[in-house]
Amino acid sequence: MYLIKKAKQFLNEVGGMTILFLQTIYWTIRNIRSGKFDVKGLIDQMAHIGVDSVLMVCITGVSVGAVLVVQIGYQFAQMGAQGYVGGVVALAMAREMAPILTSIVVAGRVGSSIAAELGTMKITEQIDALDTLATNPVDYLVVPRFWACTIMLVMLTVLVNVVGMIGGAVVAVYQIDLTLESFTNSVLEWLRVYDLFGGLFKAMVFGAIIAIIGCFKGFTTSGGAEGVGKSTTDSVVVAIMMILAVNYFLTVFISNLNSIIF
């Protein structure tokens, strides 16, 4: 019974999120058409997200790049496959590690802060106040956050790829005794633009998921300060679960597309 109730609740929420997503797209198109798209609001939000997460994202990137090289490097060196280290690490970073880890960090940092901010606005009637001022809350609050999160996740993932490979290169040279040249050659030989873009496409989808879940949890907050706390943690948990689930389907989709194109 408990499980059935939970499942129902979950499906309801997914329905609500889907509607919120569609409303966001509707308002985006409507604003672009009428020339009223809030570029300043978008840039503000992007800056906000960037400042909030750039440091953590960089640390994560360097650390993962370095660890991957250590893990893979020794093994491959023993088998005499040094020439593959750079390539394998670059593929792992570009396809999976960078988009997934960046979005988990951003879900914790940014998704939660969106949920807390909008949740507070909800319980203090600020969302109602927007409506009375003839302003649609999805238009005013969700649209800029949605696009900022989507765009910033792509940019942060690029950054993680770069710092991750720098971290990996440093370890490869100083710890595994590869030459910088063999490492970079291997990267350039194996990594294709398709892999990079596949990863960035994932990051874009994850950014959208984080923003929509954060906003949805904020809008559906009730029950005072305690409710805001609950929405905040919920937004992180749900976003990470959703990202991991969606990642599987995106991976299948991207690799199928790969075999169709190439």
């Binding site: 507070t120 203090t124 009637e125 109602d128 106040a129 009375t132 003839a134």
Partner: peptide, 23 residues
């Protein structure tokens, strides 16, 4: 529908019990 409601709301003002200022 929303567009018409918003037109009406332009002619209305509400002071909330909690003030509901934008923080």
């Amino acid at each position: 529908e929303q567009t018409r409601m918003d037109e009406l709301r332009m002619r209305m003002g509400m002071l909330f019990q909690s003030a509901a200022l934008f923080d």
